[in-house]
Amino acid sequence: MAPPRIKFDPSSLVPAVRQIEDSLRILLVDGQLAPGTSLPSVRRLAMELGVHFNTVAEAYRLLASEGWLELAHGKPAVVMPRSVPPTPDASWAEEFRERLRGLAAQLRSKGIPADQIAAELRAVAEGISR
């Protein structure tokens, strides 16, 4: 099976670290990056995506802090086995809602009906296997 791929859009208003971190997290949550998988080196991924080394390193660090990756100096980042953590306290919901509100407003401003946005969101949430 071909290794999964990630995309980075240099023209997007979303910061580069966030784009890379989100793309990787989708693959991790979805199980496309299985535990034990080695990721490309920071240098290699940065060259392919046209970003600075630190941008990729920061994305890897953020995912390591969530328990998804193991980082060791001089070795590739490795995907860790990770059980579903207990639901965190209610503060997550406020931050999550804020991000969703911004996204929903962006789509509504483009004329997309609210029920279609809700349906898309449900399909995406249910489509992710873990």
Binding site: P3, R5, F8, S11, T37, S38, L39, E48
Partner: peptide, 12 residues
């Protein structure tokens, strides 16, 4: 400004 998303294979 020409735009295109870069793609990278996650392989070591």
């Amino acid at each position: 400004q020409h735009t295109r998303a870069y793609e990278a294979e996650l392989s070591d």
